[in-house]
């Protein structure tokens, strides 16, 4: 059957989309103060905070810059930095 392009038949395609253009500020982590408590990982509404070995990293391709991580961080070690 000829595909209809409004129907997305490939699962997980949103992971391929670069959403960084939505952002005007990006979260930057001060790893010197971060205790890897994972509060930001819990609160991030996108899967844009990724757990790696002993630390978290931000997936800037999918982070839309909402700033929730910076607000929720109990040690205030995430700063929203202007992109321009």
């Amino acid at each position: 059957m000829k595909p209809v392009s409004v129907y997305i038949t490939v699962p997980g395609s949103s992971a391929q989309r670069d959403m960084s253009g939505w952002r005007n500020k990006k979260p930057v982590i001060d790893y010197g103060r971060c205790t890897n408590c994972l509060i930001c990982w819990i609160f991030c509404p996108e899967p844009a905070i990724i757990r790696e070995e002993g630390k978290i990293v931000i997936d800037y391709m999918h982070c839309k810059g909402c700033g929730i991580c910076a607000v929720e961080c109990p040690r205030k070690c995430i700063e929203m930095v202007g992109e321009l």
Partner: peptide, 12 residues
Amino acid sequence: RPRLDAETPMTV
């Protein structure tokens, strides 16, 4: 026609 169906999942 293409349709929402558990056997051939798609996003609409």
